[in-house]
């Protein structure tokens, strides 16, 4: 029972990080039909930025995180303006490849600036232990889940209530109709990229707080695919639920079955979902009749 609780908690922690990264992915996909292979590198970049602000420049936490979010948003804006906008209307493969090129550049940038060696991250969440029932779990993990859940809640509020959020949903629904209602699509696409970069960098900060910063945390970028396919490529609640399920599934297989199967389980789920229900749990079903 203790193991179960501990596994559940650590699975949910990973799952919430996946969800944060996946939400950014879904936002971009919904707004522009681009699948973003650089999402993991945005997370990496965000984590390292925060590391630089807090660990290297010695800024206080609140300021460091705020600056990280601002710079991540700027990075997102720059990427959208310089790389994605010239490619509007190009075939899918160009879009995929350009984000892959982007991920390569970001990774090189991070390695070039901070070196390839993993570093300890200055902890900001209290790392004490909390007793739940008979199990002892890390407080930082609990707090990570709480912080991520609050952020995801704020994001969904953003989509429901703000002008920009509603514009984004309108574009996802029908680009032409949105255009004729006076919504400026380039502006919304820019916001989508900024938002994706910010949510990925927060995911990065939360993850780095637990495991430290290092190149390998960008692997989360690949885990995003099982998450969004399971949840539905165009569904934000789907990204959250999918993130939680994939995170839990990983730690359960790792904890109870082993043999390194946890590395592969997300992708097996991905293939199965694609075979049976390609639009995922919450995605919009697109029917094409010939």
């Amino acid at each position: 029972m203790d193991t179960f609780l501990q596994l559940t908690l650590s699975g949910l922690t990973n799952g919430m990080v996946y969800a944060l990264v996946a939400v950014g992915f879904v936002v971009i996909y919904k707004a522009s039909d681009v699948i973003n292979f650089a999402q993991g590198e945005l997370l990496l970049f965000g984590a390292y930025l925060c590391f630089a602000f807090v660990g290297q420049f010695g800024l206080p936490w609140s300021l460091g995180v705020l600056l990280t979010m601002l710079s991540a948003a700027a990075v997102g804006l720059v990427i959208e303006r310089t790389v994605l906008r010239p490619l509007i209307g190009e075939p899918v493969i160009s879009m995929i490849m350009v984000t892959i090129g982007l991920s390569s550049v970001l990774k090189a940038l991070v390695n070039g600036i901070w070196g390839p060696r993993p570093r300890a991250f200055p902890a900001f969440l209290p790392s004490g232990e909390v007793q739940i029932g008979s199990a002892i779990v890390g407080a930082d993990r609990l707090l990570t889940i709480v912080v991520a859940a609050v952020l995801l809640g704020l994001l969904s509020l953003f989509f429901k209530t703000t002008r920009e959020g509603i514009a984004m949903r309108a574009i996802a629904d029908d680009q032409q109709a949105a255009l004729s209602m006076g919504i400026r699509i380039p502006r919304v696409l820019a916001i989508a990229w900024a938002l994706a970069a910010v949510s990925a960098s927060i995911g990065g900060i939360l993850l780095a707080n637990i495991v430290g910063v290092g190149g390998e945390i960008s692997i989360v970028g690949l885990k995003v695919f099982p998450v969004v396919i399971l949840g539905g490529l165009d569904s934000i609640p789907g990204a959250v639920v999918g993130g939680a399920i994939i995170g839990l599934l990983e730690v359960y297989t790792g904890g109870y079955i082993g043999h390194g199967l946890n590395l592969i389980v997300p992708y097996i789920v991905l293939i199965l979902v694609l075979m049976v229900r390609p639009y995922g749990l919450f995605g919009k079903e697109i029917i094409e009749r010939v």
């Binding site: 892959i100 090129g101 991920s103 390569s104 550049v105 970001l106 990774k107 090189a108 940038l109 070039g112």
Partner: peptide
């Protein structure tokens, strides 16, 4: 090499 590769692709 990694960075140049990405830049060339883009």
């Amino acid at each position: 090499q990694q960075g140049v590769f990405g830049l060339v692709v883009i």
